[in-house]
Design a protein around this nucleic acid. Structure first.
Length: 447
DNA sequence: AGGACAAAG
DNA sequence: TCTTCTTTGTCCT
């Protein structure tokens, strides 16, 4: 209740109620168990049962439903350790279906943007939103957002509202963990004593930016809970730890230190890296890998209108094998910044040529492009541009791939689906690409 | 400037 | 036989 400081003439009763304060707040909206929820949105049979989504090559668990969490399944758990017990547990697994998740993500983000003064898309399933209104109106907006996302996409979200990004993140966590809040936690309308109690119970590692290592070091100073960190001296935290953690302390106390991140077009580097489903043991196969990875990387550069000046090609053996480890990595400076698939492919294949030992079982490889610049930012000396670059091959390949699919065209063996090598990613439990492929649209039967 | 490390999702 | 991938930031050299 706002105080009225100056005693003025007596208001007639009933007088106009004092206008509640208009607040500007930050909301963090996050889809619950995003990948699992995407799978469930198109397969009702998955509702209410333990479900996990697996990483590339069906290697390990990357997302779990609440029921799977209740079974004690951890993120990162290798699928081969769960596979045998799965039927007995009633556990259902899905391969990652990034086409589906990416498409649903953009639908959710577009929807969220309609409810906000500003929006920062933070990850595939999270967005910061700028909201304004009275404390009660903010509660209502949170509920509206939840309902709208559920209605339009079938996905469950939680909304955390606070004065800073860190507090909004924290509130979101509270909303997720306390079902009775109905998926919305607004720190303004919560009893301050309750907030304090919760902060003293949540371990400091539950905060955004505080992982296991930092948690251990904080523990040594007697800082165990969120409340402990909130009460810590920011200057001490700065000197013993980092500016990042100091900002966390300030943000917990309501001082915004983390600005709205602008959409940054000038990305620093681009990596295309994958583990193989079966080890690659020959130089010939590795050349093929490099060729395909370099083309993927080139296609992304092209799409984003950037050029690279430096290319690094690398490969590696398994970290889990007892045998001799080998991690060859070669960096080459390109003659001029380019996104040309022929130049990049040649560079990647050539780079590892002398480093690959025949017979060594490589389990992963990658192509990293750095020294990135906007295409056309600086004019390139014509003498340095190869003939085919003038023909804009990358652009052409991109157009063909857009029209006929990624597997329709490529240099060398890339694009020849009939010649699919046996190291390519395996996704044995994938759901259909319901929303991005005509052939895989869900079929609805009405009686 | 660039590598090691930490963190996040 | 089976253990993700990508990006960002800080600190240190």
């Amino acid at each position: 209740m706002p105080k009225t400081a100056t005693p003025g003439p007596a208001l007639p009763w009933p007088g106009p109620a004092p206008a509640p304060a208009q607040l500007h707040r930050i909301a963090l909206v996050d889809v619950n168990s995003f990948y699992v929820s995407c799978e469930r949105a198109f397969d009702p049979a998955l509702a209410g049962i333990p479900v996990v989504v697996l990483s590339n090559n069906d290697g390990c668990v990357v997302a779990r439903s609440d029921e799977a969490k209740a079974l004690g399944i951890k993120t990162g758990e290798p699928w081969f350790k769960l596979a045998d017990a799965a039927p007995r547990l009633g556990l259902v697994q899905r391969s990652s279906n990034y086409e589906l998740y990416g498409d649903l993500s953009s639908r959710v983000m577009e929807l969220l943007g309609r409810y906000a003064l500003w929006q920062e898309v933070y990850s595939i399933d999270e967005s910061f939103l700028g909201l304004a209104g009275t404390a009660a109106e903010l509660d209502a907006q949170g509920a509206d957002i939840r309902a709208a996302v559920a209605r339009h996409t079938g996905l469950p979200v939680c909304v955390g509202i606070g004065t800073t990004k860190t507090l909004a993140k924290f509130a979101n966590r509270i909303a997720k963990q306390n079902k009775h809040l109905g998926g919305v936690c607004n720190l303004d309308t919560m009893d301050p004593d309750v907030v304090e109690t919760i902060m003293s119970r949540v371990p400091v590692t539950g905060l955004w930016g505080v992982g296991a290592k930092l948690g251990k070091r904080l523990h040594a100073l007697g800082i165990r809970s969120v409340a402990d960190l909130k009460a810590a001296d920011p200057a001490l935290i700065r000197s013993r730890f980092s500016v990042t953690l100091q900002r966390t302390v300030l943000e917990l106390n309501g001082t915004s230190c983390l600005p709205l991140e602008e959409e940054r077009a000038d990305r620093q580097q681009l990596i295309f890296s994958r583990s193989f489903s079966a080890p690659v043991t020959t130089a010939a196969e590795m050349r093929q890998v490099m060729s395909i990875y370099a083309q993927q990387a080139a296609a992304r550069l092209e799409r984003e209108g950037q050029h690279a000046r430096v290319l690094t090609a690398y490969a590696g053996t398994s970290h889990f094998s007892q045998k001799a480890a080998s991690f060859p990595s070669v960096t080459v400076r390109l003659q001029s910044p380019t996104s040309d698939p022929v130049v990049l492919t040649r560079a990647a294949v050539g780079a590892l040529e002398d480093s690959i030992v025949e017979g060594v079982p490589y389990t992963k490889a990658g192509v990293m492009l750095s020294g990135l610049s906007d295409a056309g930012a600086q004019p390139v000396f014509d003498e340095f541009v190869s003939a085919h670059e003038h023909r804009h091959l990358g652009e052409l390949l991109g157009k063909v791939a857009d029209k006929y699919g990624a597997a329709s065209i490529g240099l060398g063996l890339a694009g020849l689906s009939s010649a699919k090598p046996d190291w390519t990613m395996s996704r044995k439990f994938s759901s259909p690409r319901y929303t991005t492929e005509w052939e895989e649209l869900p079929v609805v039967k009405a009686c």
